[in-house]
Design a protein around this nucleic acid. Structure first.
Length: 272
DNA sequence: TTCCTGAAGG
DNA sequence: CCTTCGGGAA
């Protein structure tokens, strides 16, 4: 399945014209880039911005983050979600403060919490490596342009094929901006899209793959909810949340302790 | 209910 | 391959 020809210059020009002035687009400092990319994992831009500013104010570089009490890190992270990301980020800070920055995606990939996307993003934005970063936006844009689904490896190959020479940083930002602001999941704005040959232009979205229902469970009944409540309470200096069944609290605490998000001293529970 | 600049573990 | 992991907004 070949992809359609894509005018990369048109997309780059469009990006230059509409580009949102986001704080992490004002720097090439690998630490600041990494903090933004980790915060942005599965988290919308609008909600990350205030956390990003406060986090960098308190932890301006990898030495500050690496030497800080983990409880402080979790306090500034609390509310963002996926708290394990904060632990991984601090572990990254300690590693690069000790060993220096891996300057290529392959080396970054070995750091905790850094997968294929984040490694490519940091490598291209901070170090200028010519690699394509494929996040959910980029995947959706490519799938719609070619009107074809691909498994991860062929998708990565297609993304690499599209990458214009020497423009990886702007290109990756441009493709994500396109997916985030125009080619959105629910209602693609084809009228404002710079991609000329898109096979999906003006056509109705294909029916979403029927995903099997997951037990009709309310979020408040999930372990994730209890975990979040516990960490938020501890970060706020409060006791364990009341009104939740002891068995659910215990199950959540066991998972949190296994992840290193809480420390248990007998009956006492505290942040690490 | 789905979605969001994913990664790690089974 | 599958599930887990937060939380808010549309």
């Amino acid at each position: 399945m070949r992809g359609v020809p894509v005018d990369a210059d048109a997309i780059l020009s469009w990006y230059g014209a509409v580009r949102r002035d986001l704080p992490w687009r004002r720097t090439t400092d690998p630490y600041r880039i990494l903090v933004s990319e980790v915060m942005l994992q599965q988290t919308q831009v609008a909600r990350v911005v205030p956390y990003y500013e406060a986090f960098l104010e308190r932890f301006p570089d990898e030495v500050a983050l690496g030497s800080a009490p983990t409880a402080d890190v979790l306090r500034l992270w609390s509310g963002l979600g996926y708290n394990r990301r904060a632990l991984a980020l601090q572990a990254c800070a300690r590693a690069v403060a000790r060993d220096g920055w891996p300057r290529a995606a392959e080396g970054l990939r070995a750091l905790p919490g850094i997968g294929p996307y984040t490694a490519a993003a940091v490598a291209s934005f901070a170090f200028g490596e010519q690699v394509a970063a494929v996040d959910t936006n980029v995947r959706r844009v490519i799938e719609r342009v070619d009107r074809a689904h691909r498994t991860p490896r062929p998708l990565a190959a297609r993304a690499a094929e599209l990458l214009p020479a020497g423009r990886a940083a702007d290109w990756n930002q441009a493709m994500m901006e396109l997916g985030a602001t125009v080619c959105t999941a629910r209602s693609p704005g084809c009228d404002a899209c710079p991609v000329t040959g898109c096979r999906s232009r003006g056509r109705p979205l294909p029916p979403p793959p029927a995903r099997r229902a997951r037990g009709a469970q309310r979020f408040e009944e999930t372990d994730r909810f209890v975990r979040g409540r516990i960490v938020a309470a501890l970060a706020a200096g409060e006791e364990l949340p009341r009104g939740i069944a002891a068995e659910r609290i215990e199950r959540a605490l066991a998972g949190l302790a296994r992840d290193g998000l809480v420390v248990r001293d007998g009956a006492a529970v505290r942040l690490p």
